[in-house]
Nucleic acid binder design. Structure first.
Length: 477
RNA sequence: GGCGCCUUCGUCAAGUGGUUAAGACACCGCCCUCUCACGGCGGGUUCAAGGGUUCGAAUCCCUUAGGCGUCACCA
């Protein structure tokens, strides 16, 4: 059997859309699940869109997502170069070959003529098909710029098989005489793509549905050259849902849309990859949702792919991200959240990690959660009223005063000791735990909700600051 | 507009002629609990519509509607 080879062929735009990442992931998973190769090829044939360092950016992003090419610009391989702008002579050779065989022709029309009514509606850009050979010679001699166009059959239809969609048939009369080689000598996507996929022995083409309609043109090229057809798999797009409920292709208006946006927000790469994998694919005979890359590879199969569009759901990403955090050790979490923990010593960092890892969807949630530890929010007497625990500002003062006395005596400011002292204090007070804890927590944090309880906050704050806050609150009450 | 693709809970989805139509997220309720979270238990909501075929249809066929894509010297 022929070796499975898939490729990811992005244009170098310094931006990795989630949809692109997913396409790369599926191509990678399929290849790896079949013991095949995954190739990275850069489609930089549009000089106007070239972005500096974009290739490195793509490679770094794939590496972060643990999608490792077997061949690529900086990964080596037997089919180099893997950057299309370095393969111009190859495309030219094959384009000329098609002109020779009568499947393509030179077109000397300028841009304006292209967009004429005739071409747009009736002619499908077929105007230069039957130029007088003498005129062609003349134009060439004058050095007049030209493009090479594919000569489409005028009758009949072209059918190709897609793994997800079955047979797709399009009438040849719908196909325009598309440009193969541009006047600057660069190939178009529709040409370079076919030539390279053949030369690089790609067995399965996994790409977005936006290419379904141009696939018959590609198929015709394979036929013109007498090349064996690869297997096509056209993936449904990733959608976004706007505030008004409308669904459209995932874009900026939906929030973060690139892998890097998500990383910057503090989602783990593993969590993003895991979530994205499930956006349009589900495992067979299993309800598993948390997958390592190895498990994805083991479980992946094409028949688990969905052919309908999937809406990107940030809420579910949050959940999945949280699952990854919860599964981490305190040390690992502290490590990954390091830049948010700068105000704490090592033991407190680890302890904070233990508190936060069950409460965080993304790392950037952290600052808002722990801000009160650094800067006490303004005093608000309203907070000292809590119906459920029958707490009032008056009662709060009555609890704070003795509590301060007890805490002042504590020299061993550790979690265990603090726990012990507070528990004893509650016991002696004869009040419910909540009734005692409420005023303490408010005085220490000036907010109703805190990650962790009173003891935890006391420990994190340290003795000095804790007592200062308690005293300050007592004074104001 | 032509052509093409798509349509199971709000979202991701399982399902391929006979199921009480899985599971997950979100949501709601209860339990645990010093708040929040974690954890545990429970709940509501789904086959786009209309026609067929069939003893029987989410599953097969037709029509309609809606969504998306494409119609570049962009990919």
């Amino acid at each position: 059997m022929k070796k499975i080879r898939t490729r990811f062929a992005p244009s170098p735009t310094g931006y990795m859309h989630i949809g692109n990442l997913r396409t790369a992931l599926y191509a990678y998973l399929f290849a790896k699940s079949q013991g095949g190769d995954f190739i990275l090829r850069i489609e930089d044939t549009d000089r106007a869109r070239y972005v500096a360092d974009a290739v490195e950016f793509i490679e770094r992003t794939l590496a972060a997502a643990k999608i490792i090419p077997d061949e690529g610009p900086h990964h080596g391989g037997n089919f180099a170069p893997y950057v299309q702008s370095e393969r111009m002579d190859i495309y030219k050779k094959y384009a000329e070959q098609l002109v020779e065989s009568g499947h393509a022709y030179r077109c000397f029309c300028s841009g304006e003529e292209m967009t004429s009514e005739e071409n747009k509606f009736g002619g499908y850009n077929r105007h230069c098909r039957d130029l007088d050979p003498a005129e062609i010679e003349k134009n060439l001699a004058e050095g007049k710029p030209y493009v090479i166009r594919q000569k489409m059959p005028l009758a009949g239809e072209t059918t190709f098989f897609d793994v997800l969609h079955g047979n797709i048939t399009i009438a040849n009369s719908e196909l325009e005489d598309q440009v193969l080689l541009k006047s600057d000598g660069m190939p178009t996507y529709n040409f370079a793509n076919v030539v390279d996929d053949h030369l690089m022995e790609i067995s399965h083409i996994i790409r977005g549905t936006e290419f379904i309609t141009s696939t018959p043109k590609h198929v015709l090229l394979y036929e013109f050259f007498g090349w064996e057809l690869p297997t096509f798999i056209h993936l449904a797009p990733v959608m976004g849902k706007a505030a008004d409920g409308t669904v459209s292709k995932l874009s900026k208006r939906h929030g973060a849309t690139s892998f890097n946006d998500l990383i910057e927000m503090g989602y783990l790469p593993e969590a993003i990859t895991n979530y994205v994998a499930l956006l349009g694919w589900s495992p067979k005979n299993s309800c598993q949702e948390i997958f390592s890359m190895d498990e994805l590879i083991k479980n992946f199969s094409l028949d688990g792919l969905s052919k309908s569009p999937a809406v990107f759901d940030y809420a579910k990403l949050d959940w999945m991200s949280g699952e990854y955090f919860k599964a981490m050790s305190d040390e690992d979490f502290a490590d990954v959240a390091e830049k948010y923990f700068t105000d704490f010593d090592e033991p407190r960092k680890i302890f904070l990690a233990s508190l936060l890892k069950t409460r965080v969807a993304k790392l950037s949630d952290i600052p808002a959660m722990i801000a009160f530890l650094k800067d006490l929010p303004p005093f608000d007497i309203e907070l000292f009223t809590n119906k459920r625990n029958k707490v009032t500002p008056q009662k709060s003062a009555e609890i704070l005063a003795p509590a301060i006395k007890i805490l002042e005596q504590v020299d061993d400011w550790t979690l265990d000791t603090l726990n012990e002292k507070i528990a004893a204090f509650v016991e002696d007070s004869g009040l419910k735990v909540g009734a005692v804890m409420w005023p303490l927590r408010i005085a220490l944090s000036m907010q109703k909700v805190t990650p962790g309880g009173v003891t935890e906050i006391l420990y994190l704050l340290g003795k000095e600051i804790s007592l200062a806050r308690l005293n300050s609150a007592l004074e104001k009450l």
